[in-house]
Design a protein around this nucleic acid. Structure first.
Lengths: 151, 151
DNA sequence: CAGTATAGGACTGATTTTGTCGCAGTTCAA
DNA sequence: TTGAACTGCGACAAAATCAGTCCTATACTG
């Protein structure tokens, strides 16, 4: 439960790949798909969406491909996931603007909104760069938070 | 994306209801389903599962129903969600014990494990009681964490 | 122009989620 | 002791979502 779609996974992996290859001017969707064994056309769509929201810059034609539009350190996992999977709602009732259709009202929605924010916060604190170098400050801070919350 | 199933929602709502009615010896699935407009048989299954994992005590027969097996303060949202939706994995690749089937290896899985733990931590810090009284310490601590992470 | 890429719509199949049905066992109370 | 009101559970059906493919158009390079 509570898991990312494969598309979001693919997107994060692709961005990580791009962050690891800053030398290459641009990398094609096929290149990335091949190295990870991802269906190329599916990854292409994911990258197209990430381009649309401005996280990537695309370059059509021969030797074309994608590149990060910002440095990896300034792209959060949240942005990627949000772009691909849509808005983050932990409760199944909150569908966009419309309120819960359950009778009196979804009495649980409001208190869980905080949880939602907490999770979004965690995701926002993780950058693509953190995926490359797992031993980074943000990673450690996330760990710290866990222990902090357990206390 | 990243949302609970309706079953988990129903489960949380039901537990909250039970926490709000400690006077009643036991409440039937139908009672709760009626007050919230939830399909009764579906809620019944959810409650059966929660009983199975020991969060509820059931009582068959006339005037039967369910009651919390512990005080609301000592039942976490995590336990409920875990019981209903299964283990919490943010990456779609981590299916149980088996590692990712993506080619070299899902390079993203390991760094996201921390995120997973952070989210689990947030969920563990929220009790059923917190859902009843949204202005509780744990709720505030969760809020605090969000601001802390944004800094 | 030929080849390689992105852009994107339409569509199909797989998987998951949601909800229903039917039946067996339990308890209570008239 | 019988029937109504419950839980417990497996099998199914319906609906929604996700994953993946196909096809066509367009853009850029040499």
């Amino acid at each position: 439960m509570l898991r990312l779609t494969k598309k979001a996974d693919y997107g994060l992996m692709a961005l990580k790949y791009l962050a690891e290859h800053p030398d290459s001017v641009s990398v094609s969707a096929k290149d990335i798909a091949d190295t990870y064994g991802i269906p190329p056309q599916l990854l292409a769509k994911v990258l197209q969406r990430l381009t649309k929201v401005g996280l990537l810059r695309s370059h059509a034609g021969m030797n074309g491909g994608y590149e990060l539009s910002r440095e990896a350190r300034r792209i959060s996992a949240f942005e990627v996931i949000h772009a691909i999977d849509g808005p983050l709602f932990i409760t199944s009732c909150t569908k966009g603007s419309k309120s819960c259709d359950l009778e009196p009202n979804c009495t649980i929605k409001e208190p869980l909104a905080r949880v939602n924010e907490s999770i979004a916060g965690v995701l926002k604190s993780i950058s693509i760069y953190d995926l490359v170098d797992a031993e980074t400050a943000a990673g450690r801070s996330a760990e710290m938070l866990v222990t902090l919350m357990h206390s």
